[in-house]
Write a protein that binds this DNA or RNA. Sequence first.
RNA 1: GGUCGCAUAGCUCAGCUGGUUAGAGCGCACGGUUCACAUCCGUGAGGUCGUAGGUUCGAAUCCUACUGCGACCACCA
Length: 917
Amino acid sequence: MTQPLAPQYDPTAFEAPLYRGWKERGYFQADAGVVLRGERQPYVIVIPPPNVTAVLHMGHGLNNTVQDVLIRWRRMQGRETLWVPGTDHAGIATQNVVERQLAAEGKTRYDLGREAFVERVWSWVRETGSTILRQLEAIGCSCDWTRTRFTLDPGLSRAVREVFVRLYEKGLIYRGNYIINWCPRCLTALSNEEAEGVETAGKLYHLRYPLAGPQPEGTRLPTLPDGRAYLVVATTRPETMLGDTAVAVHPDDARYRALVGREVELPLTGRRIPIVADEYVDREFGSGAVKITPAHDPNDFEVAQRHGLPALNVMTPEATMNENAPAEFRGLDRFEARRRVVDALAAAQLLERVEDHTHAVPHCYRCDTVVEPRLSEQWFVRMRPLAEPALAASREGRVRFTPQRWTKVYEDWLENIRDWCISRQLWWGHRIPVWYCRADGCGETIVAREDPTHCPRCGSASLEQDPDVLDTWFSSWLWPFSTLGWPDETEDLKAFYPTSTLVTAPEILFFWVARMIMAGLEFMGKEPFREVYLHGTVRDHLGRKMSKSLGNGIDPLAVVELYGADALRYTIVSQAGPGTDLYMNYEDIESTFAPGRNFANKVWNVGRFALLRIGDDAVPAVEDVKDSLELADRWILSRLSGAVRDVTRHLEAFRLHEAANTLYHFFWGEVADWYVELVKPRLAGEAGEASRAAARATVVEVLDQAFRLMHPVMPFVTEALWLRLPRPAGRSREESLVVARWPVPAPEREDAEAEAAMNALIELIGSVRGLRKEYDVPVSQELEVRLSNVSAALRGALEAEERAVRRLARVRDILVDGRAPEAKAGEGKAPGAHAVLRDGAEVFIPLAGVLDIEHERRRLHAEMERLSGLLRAVDGKLANEQFVTRAPESVVAREREKAQALRDQLERLSAKLAALS
RNA sequence: GGUCGCAUAGCUCAGCUGGUUAGAGCGCACGGUUCACAUCCGUGAGGUCGUAGGUUCGAAUCCUACUGCGACCACCA
C-alpha cells in the first residue's frame, strides 16, 4: 500500500487486490461465539439465492448492493454481521437449460435416462455453476464465503426431507387428484404462483348444445333448423368441449328450471351429458348456462365433485388431443384442435357467435407456454394452518415491510391462501421422500427420513420411490434456517437465527417471502427475519423490465470494468429509494453511470489532493489544536457532524438514496468545493504554522470520517485512500475501513455561528461571481467590492477569510462600511452592479465603463418586483390574525424577520434605483 | 372485477413529522490552460408540483372525486 497514488482514478488497479485482502483477512467471516457469549449483537442477512445457472444482471446488482451497504454499515457499527451467500438449484430453469443443450445434440432427456440426465446436470452445475457468486465479489459483496450454500447440498436436502416428513406426519401434506396448472412444454405441474396471468386478446365462443328429447312445457329455448331445441354455452377454449360431462345452470334460474335432470347431446362426440343445477353459475353471464369440463377447469372440477360427474381428460401431457377425443381430433395440438372444433361446430350450425374477449391467460413462468389446467395426481401442502401464524406475525408487527404498503399485499394473499402443489414431474431437484410398496395386495405408502429398504407393513423389498421431485421453492422456503444447519441445533443456528433483514424484490413476495415466514414460524417457532426491505425493479429508459429476451440489459461487470464497482454501486444506491424502480439506459451506459463515475473520481481526487499536500510531518488530532481552529475548520467539522447524523438516520429508515445524496452533497458541495479551496493556502503554510496545523488536523479528521461514511456505498475508493491517510499523532486506528468504527455525531462540534458565517460568505462569493458573469467582466479584470449593511456573521467571516474571498471571487479589494467612506458616499451614483444578500448585506461593484446603466436599472427593477411579491405574501400572512395566534411562535417570528429583511432590502434597492436614474 | 401505487424542470427522480425564495443528477446555454480532478471549475435559463374540490391560519405534502399511467390479485365460463 505504499505505491504512489495514480494521478488518474483507475479503479481496476486497486479494486480486486483490496477485495482479495479483505477476504484473506477474514473480515467477512462471522463468529457465532462472540454472539453466544453476548459480546456482540448479530446482524444477519441471507441472500436471496440466485439460480445456480444465473449470470449477474442489474437486478442482482441492485439486490446485492443494497444488502452489502446494510451489511457493511452494521459491521462498522460493531455488529457481528453475517451475510450468507448461496445459490438455488432452480428446478425447471436449470433442467430446461440442460435439455436445450441436449436438444442441440439431437437428444432428449429420455435418451439419457433419469440417472444419466441428473448426472449431466450436476456436472454442468459443477463446471459453470455459481459463476454469479464470483461475480458478486467483483462488485464488492462482503458475504461470508465460508458459509456458501446450495439448495441441493446434503445438509439442505436433509432439511427438505425432514420438513416433508414432519408436515406429512402432521397431516399437512397430502396427495390427491386435482386440477393443477400444467405446462405442456416443461411437462410438469406448476403452483398457482408459477402460472402467470397474461392479458390476452382472445375470443369467447358461444356454442349451441342441442337438447336431448323434446323441450319441456314452459321453457322457451331457441330451436335449430331441424327443430331441436338448444342451450347456448360460452367458452374461451372450445376444444375442451370434447371433455364436457355436463351443462350447469343456476338452481333458481326460471329459464332452465324445467331442464335440470334432462340431457343435452354433446356435439361432435355423440355423448349425452346431463344438465345440473349449481350455485356456482352466474345467471347474468352469457346465457346463464355453463359447460362443465371437470378434467380441464378447476371450477368445473368442483362442480363435478358436487354432482358426482365423471372427469374426462381429452388431452395428453403434451396438450394434444388424446384417445378420449373423437377420432378426427386425436393427435392434434390443442390450438389446432380449437380451430377444427370451431369449424366443425360452425358447419353444423352449432356456433352461435364469436366475440372478442380479453382475459388473463395463465402462462408458465419459466417458458411462457400457455398453461393447461389438467386433472392429475399431485402432492400438496395444506396451507391454511401455516398461514395463520404468518398472518399474526405481520399483524403484531413482528415482521415489518418497507415500504409498508406491501403488508396488505402479503396479508391479502395469506387470507386467501390456496393449497400448494409441490410435486413436479422433473428430474432435477429433491426427490419426494415417498415410496410405494409394489408387493401384491400391499400398496403401502412410506414417507421416511431415511430411504427404506423394506415395506414396514408386508416386509417386501419391492419398493418404488415416487418419481417426482419437489418444487424448487420447497427448499427455498427453508433457506433462513437450513443454511444455518437446521435440523441440527448448531451454534450458527443459535447465534444467527432469526436473521435481521431480508432484502428482495416484490415479485417473489408470495413465492418466497411469505413461505419463508410460514416455514420459520412452523419449524423454528420464530419469524425468520424482522424486516423485509422490498426494492424496485431495474428497467430500461423506456420503462421495460430489463430482461435477457428483450436484450435491454446492462452487464454490471461491464460497468465495473469501465468505471469501477464503486461507480456502479453509487449509481444504483443513489436511485434506490424504497420500492422505487430504477431506470437505466442500456444504449448510453456512460451517462447512466456518470453520476457514480464522476463522484468516485471526485473522491479519488480530493483524497489525492490531501495526501499530496498534507505533508509528512506528524498530523495533530483535532482535539489537540482546538484553539487554533479557524472558521472554515469549525464550519466543516460542524457540517460533518450533521452529515453523520443524516446519513445514519437515512440508513436506519432504508432511505439509501437519501444517504447517498447526503454524502454526495457533503463531500462534493462542501468538502471539495469550499473547504478544500479555503484551506489550500493554509496547507501550503502561507498563514503560519498554527493555521497549517489546524488545517491539517481538520482535513485528516474530515476525510477519515467521510471515508467511513462513504465506505458502505463505495468500499473500494474509500479504502484505497483511507489506508494512506495519515493517522493523527498519538491516536490509534483500525487496520481497515471494513472493520472501522462507524462515526457518531459530535454535538460539541456543531456550531451554528460558524455555519451562518460561512453561508453568508458562500453567498457573497457566489453573488460576486454572478455579477461578473452577468456584466461580462473578464476574469482577468480584478474587481473591487463594496459592502454595506453587513451582518455580524458576514463581518466575522470576512475577517477570517478575506484572502480567500479575494481569491475565490477574484476580487482586488473588499471595502466594508466605514472602512471605505468614499465608497459609501459615492456608491449610489457611481456606475456599478448591485446585489442584496439574504441576510440583508448589500454588494456593490463599481463597473465604470462596463456597466450598461439601462440594464442595471431593469435588473434592479425586476429584483424589486420579485421581492415585493414575496413581501406581499409574507405581509398577508402576518395580517392574518389566525396565523399569528395559531401558528407556532417560531414560525411567526421567522415570518416577521423575513418581512423586515425584505422591507429593508426593498428600501435600499429603491434608493439605488433612484440614484441610477 | 378487486386492491395498491405513481403523476414535481427537456429526461430520470428527491422532497423523510403540513410552515424553504420547491431541490439534485443528466441534458442545455455561456465563460474558464489557478500546480486534486475537463470524469473538472464557475455562472445561468428552465417548474401555475396531473385536474377539480375540501380540511387547515398555512398544502407539492393530509382528505375526496376525476383523468392518465403502472403493478399485483381474481374461477365470471
